[in-house]
Amino acid sequence: MSLDKATVRRIATLARIDVQEAELEPLAGELSAILGWIEQLQEVDTSAVAPMTGGTDAALPWRSDVVDDGGQPEKVVANAPDPQDGFFTVPKVVE
């Protein structure tokens, strides 16, 4: 499997990582090498195998759907880059 520059650009957009034009070609090479190596999985017959979807086969526990924490907006925004009045802020998203 070999990735071209256009595909790397598309993945980078999906991942919200700004990639400069000059970085696309080397990245395509590195990612293609990794994917080429991963390709060997295709030779394994998995037709009768159920996927392992987590690190444990234990059933997930249930709990009551009640509020047991909260009411600390100062702590929640304490690490934000530019908090205002207990809110997170972002660049303008509506015109």
Partner: peptide, 11 residues
């Protein structure tokens, strides 16, 4: 890729 890997993980 992903589903295939999860199946090989089970093996």
């Amino acid at each position: 890729y992903y589903l295939k890997a999860q199946k090989v993980r089970a093996l």
